[in-house]
Amino acid sequence: MTEPVVYIDDEPLLCRATEAILGRSGIAVATFTDPLAGLAYVEAHPVAVVLCDYRMPRMNALELLQQLARAVPFYIVSGELDVARLAAGNPRVTGVLTKPFPAEEMLELVRAHLPTAG
């Protein structure tokens, strides 16, 4: 059982599209529109990589990361201007994806954290 990719975004259509793309490529993915639900899942399950939207109601990606005790590969996904600044200097942030990113970029990034197909 491969560890899934976790995608957290308050925009349901983005969760659905991500499911469709990763699913089509045979990658397991769990999506959450509620950041608290996403946080609970990551704490309770092994995951390959977390992609988290920056700006969400009730908490943003950095706040969620702060509450996450475990160390996991963590990418901030954002449509904000000046996204890099958001993550600057935070050692727990693995990287940043800027919306609207090409689908291929997400696939490549995700695949880098999956065990190579055997």
Binding site: E11, A20, I21, G79, E80, L81, K99, F101, A103
Partner: peptide
Amino acid sequence: MAAGIAHEINNPLSIIELFAYT
């Protein structure tokens, strides 16, 4: 307000990109 506005537009664009790929 630009930051908020950018976010507002980038989400739909991201949806379009991902669904177009799909």
